[in-house]
Design a protein around this nucleic acid. Sequence first.
RNA 1: GCGGGAGUAGAUCAAUUGGUUAGAUCAACAGAUUGUGAUUCUGUGGGUUGCGGGUUCGAGUCCCGUCUCCUGCC
Length: 364
Amino acid sequence: MNFEVIKEDVGSEARLGRLETAHGTVDTPVFMDVGTLGSVKALEPRDLAELGTQVVLGNTYHLLLRPGPEVIAAAGGLHRFMRWDGPILTDSGGFQVFSLARMRKFTEEGCRFNSHLDGHEFFLGPKESMAMQRTLGSDIAMVFDECLPYPCDRARAEASVARTVRWAERCRGEPRADGQQVFGIVQGGIYDDIRRRCAEELVKIGFDGYAVGGVSVGEPEEEMYRAVEASVPYLPKDRPRYVMGLGVMRQMAECVARGVDMFDCVIPTRIARHGTAITRSGNIAIKAAKYAFDQGPVEEGCECYCCRTFSRSYVRHLLACGEILGLRLLTIHNVWALNRFMADMRAAIAAGTFGEFRRELPPA
RNA sequence: GCGGGAGUAGAUCAAUUGGUUAGAUCAACAGAUUGUGAUUCUGUGGGUUGCGGGUUCGAGUCCCGUCUCCUGCC
């Protein structure tokens, strides 16, 4: 078994878990940092270790376009290429084909699309995605799926999900790297019964873990929770569950309460580069004029390197000038803030106080 | 002292033979961002067109005076 549930919350579906991978053990619930191109933007592997990051994401689509499988293979896989010894999860490219590629054409075999970089034509399907993820050598590979837009009519959702399930089955049968796990992805848009059926079909195929995909694509927040509620209960309790693309504290806590164990999101690193700091009491735009003379840390009480060392005034100055150190310092803070948040959530579940933890979170 | 040139938003510059509410780009400020977009997107504020007169239905534009800066000459 790759996954062990250590403790279950009594007042919710939250659970404390431990996920074994070929590159180490992951404590769940966990937030995973997105490192699309083989780098968590602005951070080095040693930073990630210090910040408490457990898993780094890589991306099949992006790494296929650049630098390409040959370069990764020559390095001996993504771990060695980027010098990160910890667990790596690779996204299949399904979402990127949906969100980035131009001129895409779907067939039963996959998707032909043009690179968003230079228009060069590529083809990605279950076979190609798994081959690339094998080359990357990730600890966890995701199946190649089709991410539905929002809104999406029922007929299209049904047809798409049927194909996503067929693709999942093909992915399951493809060769993989040593010790590589494969996670299935539940789709179905906002249609509860389609999601349920998708989950059940995936469970029949049997995966090492299961993800809920196709959320936070523009639907209202309530719909997102409904999508999770329509998926998670039909997934095995002894397998890790992963909601893809979520990284807002309250949303993650709400999903944990619904039985989710893993998350990833570009939010903490992206908004850091745009000048916003994540704090327990909400996001703050450090670039704001009101912080120009503020000698306090980005977040009061935070123990990250940025907050221990620098003032809001200085970080604001760096961001205002476009100094890359500003991006880096805020990224350090935001990554730390989310890792700390998840650690606190795990501690709360362990202590049986998750209910209070959840209630004390700010509403927005 | 004399000649020439230039004064328009915080900055750099536009504005048809004089013609609607003087624009653009940076900067500033605010917001956005959910399986990645640092150098991105959206929005907002900002002007006694150096100052004072004059001509005209109408002046950033033409005329007179004046101030400042640049430049050349003595």
